[in-house]
Amino acid sequence: MAAVVGIRAWPRPVVLACATLLVAGCYYAAGRLGLSQQLIADGSVVTPIWPPTGLAVACLLLFGPWCVPGIALGALLVILSFGTIGAEGAGIVAGNTAAPVCAWLMLRAAGFRLSLSRLRDGLALVFLGALTAMLISSGTGVGMLVLSGELPTDHLGIVWLAWWVGDAMGVVLVTPLLLLLYRARLPPVSMRWAEAAGLTVVVCVLVPLIMYSSVSLLFLCFPILIWAALRFQLAGGIPCALFMSVTATVVARQEAGSFDGLTDMETMTRLHAFNGSLGLTALLLSAVISEQLNTRRSVERACVELVEALQHLNAGGSGTPGPPGGDAR
């Protein structure tokens, strides 16, 4: 009989420490990616999309509260990349940690499903996870900068709005994408692969042309986005919306295309409105279509089960013997 060699599992504290460092590293990388696409609005630096918030909410939804130390450490690393941390930096770290945690708690209380297969899931992610919870990070961050004297009070409103929208867009665009990738499975080869390839080509070719056009043609992105959401739901809508948002941000930073000749405030306002419209359209339309498809599948299954039950009853009834006795005549 062959000997069985036992493999000792790593101690739980070591696993938690490695997982914390992994989450912190991903948060820091996402933060550097977001900072690479900065805009200047009214003399202040803003980020139209802040990916770390979406990453943090997705980690909490998928793995639970043990991710909180990693989120806090990642936020601290991002702040340290600007220099030494002070009281305002500690407050920003606390706000950037508390906001995803509050988003996670509210989504759990609302019965949020990771599949985002219902309209109520999309609405909960937008209005609870993004718009409501991110008030904490934006309010705390801007408040700490004002108290420390690093932010003039006349810039308070615009910086808070940009901070809030950037954090919210991170949740709307990045969180669904990460949830989708976590449970992604390759579908069987079919004609939809050809349609998906055609959609990818259309998006990669037409979207940059639309963005860099000297005529404002941003509205032409929405038929493409609707096509992606209708045919592929989240798998098509969210990546398409994220690609359009990133492309629009790059064009806005270059002051080209639809953003040429605009002031800093006009550029930020148009970009935020465009990104927000993309995210809401992709997320909510995909959720509606998924819910309808699931309802149709449920009805079809119920019809099949009903037909099988009727066939079983008919088969049982045809074999029932007649009454005893012969002809009365």
Rank of each mutant, 00 (worst) to 15 (best):
Gln38Gly: 03
Gln38Arg: 00
Gln38Leu: 03
Leu39Cys: 08
Leu39Ala: 06
Leu39Thr: 02
Ile40Leu: 09
Ile40Gly: 02
Ile40Val: 15
Ile40Ser: 14
Ile40Arg: 10
Ala41Glu: 14
Ala41Met: 08
Ala41Gly: 15
Ala41Phe: 15
Asp42Glu: 15
Asp42Ile: 10
Asp42Asn: 11
Gly43Cys: 06
Gly43Met: 05
Gly43Asp: 02
Gly43His: 14
Gly43Leu: 10
Ser44Phe: 01
Ser44Glu: 06
Ser44Pro: 10
Ser44Lys: 05
Val45Met: 00
Val45Arg: 00
Val45Thr: 06
Val46Trp: 04
Val46Met: 07
Val46Tyr: 07
Val46Gln: 03
Val46Arg: 01
Val46Thr: 03
Val46Glu: 01
Val46His: 01
Val46Cys: 03
Thr47Asn: 01
Thr47Asp: 02
Thr47Cys: 01
Pro48Arg: 05
Pro48Ala: 13
Pro48Met: 05
Ile49Val: 15
Ile49Glu: 11
Trp50Glu: 04
Pro51Val: 02
Pro51Cys: 07
Pro51Tyr: 07
Pro51Trp: 01
Pro52Arg: 02
Pro52Tyr: 01
Thr53Trp: 01
Thr53Glu: 09
Thr53Tyr: 01
Thr53Asp: 12
Gly54Met: 01
Leu55Gly: 02
Leu55Phe: 05
Leu55Lys: 05
Leu55Pro: 11
Ala56Ser: 00
Ala56Lys: 00
Ala56Arg: 00
Val57His: 04
Val57Glu: 04
Ala58Ser: 10
Ala58Thr: 02
Ala58Glu: 13
Ala58Met: 08
Cys59His: 08
Cys59Leu: 12
Leu60Gln: 05
Leu60Pro: 03
Leu60Cys: 08
Leu61Ala: 11
Leu61Val: 03
Leu62Lys: 15
Leu62Gly: 06
Leu62Ile: 09
Leu62Phe: 11
Leu62Pro: 05
Gly64Asn: 13
Gly64Phe: 07
Gly64Ser: 12
Pro65Asn: 13
Pro65Lys: 13
Pro65Tyr: 08
Trp66Phe: 13
Trp66Asn: 14
Cys67Pro: 07
Val68Met: 13
Val68Glu: 08
Val68Asn: 07
Val68Phe: 13
Val68Trp: 03
Pro69Leu: 09
Pro69Asn: 03
Pro69Gly: 12
Gly70Asp: 12
Gly70Leu: 04
Gly70Thr: 06
Gly70Met: 12
Ile71His: 14
Ile71Asn: 04
Ile71Trp: 02
Ile71Gly: 08
Ile71Pro: 02
Ile71Phe: 08
Ala72His: 13
Ala72Gly: 15
Leu73Ser: 14
Gly74Phe: 03
Gly74Arg: 05
Gly74Asp: 05
Gly74His: 06
Gly74Asn: 09
Ala75Phe: 01
Ala75Ser: 10
Ala75Gly: 13
Leu76Asn: 08
Leu76Thr: 09
Leu76His: 10
Leu76Cys: 14
Leu76Ser: 14
